[in-house]
Amino acid sequence: MSQTEVLAIWGAVTGTVGAVAGLLGLWLRFRQHGLDKAKLLCESSFGFDSPNRSLHKLTVRSIGRRPVAIDNIRYFITPRDWKQRLIKSWHHKKGRWLWHQEPKQKIKLGEGEKTEISISLPNGIAITEIYKVGVVDQAGKAWPVKWEASSRLQKVATQETLDEIAKENDKRVVSATGYRLGEKYFLETKFNTKPSRSGTPCGRSFWFLDEKKYQEKLQNIKDIQLDQFLSGDIEELS
């Protein structure tokens, strides 16, 4: 192999190495630039603490290196009229069928930090009517929230009253009310003596993971415990 051929091969090798190193450096700079940007990961969860208190919330995590201040939560509402639903995107661009929830206090997230925001909707807007949610930062960028479909929301984020029972006599009053709270069942009992209805009210609540257990408990209270309390055989429902 001549000296000229050796130099040509060496030049090709060093040129290739240089090109690879250049591409690698460019990729690393691009990756670093991406990491330095703001980035939010947003999720939703649903639950109930009682019939009067939901635990629906958004969890927002900062996974970028630049701090992010949250300006508001934007809820996209499904129009109730089917004609308006066909052009709902146009309505949203005009600021219609939208609900903006402002945080109760300023929220600024640094890298690795998270916050939880309770979902708050105005009266008249059901959570099942919300089909998309975005967390809007101080720069006006909307970060999408992982949100359930309407059919799933109907199961996990709504409640209904299932049963209401009440009995009383001259001395005592007792009641039981059953609810479906999301995917769980809740039975609330109230009982008290009533000398002129001035007895101290008492109560006890029960949670159930399935409807069968709920129905069994309700039947026991309805058929046995209500009458036992009214007769004075027991002093509380259990």
Rank of each mutant, 00 (worst) to 15 (best):
R180H: 07
K114T: 12
A126M: 06
R96P: 04
R180T: 07
N192V: 00
T78G: 01
S198H: 04
Q154G: 09
E164C: 09
G199Q: 00
P122S: 05
T78E: 13
E113L: 06
K83F: 08
V136D: 01
I107C: 10
T189I: 04
P103A: 09
H100I: 08
R172Q: 06
I117F: 03
I87E: 08
G95L: 07
F76E: 11
I87C: 06
E160G: 11
Y131F: 12
S198R: 08
G178Y: 03
S175M: 10
L162S: 12
R96C: 10
L121W: 04
Y131G: 13
G140C: 05
T189S: 07
S150Q: 14
K83Y: 06
W82D: 14
K155I: 10
E102Y: 14
S198L: 10
G178P: 04
G95Q: 09
P195M: 06
K108C: 14
G124F: 06
G182H: 01
P122F: 04
T128W: 03
E111Q: 14
G182N: 03
F208E: 05
Y131T: 09
K184S: 10
F208G: 09
V174F: 01
I107Q: 11
S198T: 12
G95K: 07
Q84D: 15
W147P: 04
G124A: 08
P195N: 08
E188W: 07
L121H: 02
V136N: 00
L98H: 08
W207G: 04
G134C: 05
D210L: 01
I117Q: 02
S205F: 02
R172F: 00
V174W: 00
K155G: 04
G140D: 10
R204W: 02
S120E: 14
C202W: 07
Q159N: 10
P103M: 05
K106V: 10
E188N: 14
G140N: 05
F76H: 15
Q159A: 08
L209E: 15
G112K: 07
K171W: 13
K93M: 14
W82L: 09
G182M: 01
P195K: 11
A149F: 06
C202M: 09
K88D: 11
T115C: 14
D170E: 15
P103S: 09
K141R: 11
S118G: 05
K88H: 11
K171Y: 13
A139I: 02
F208T: 09
S118N: 12
G199T: 02
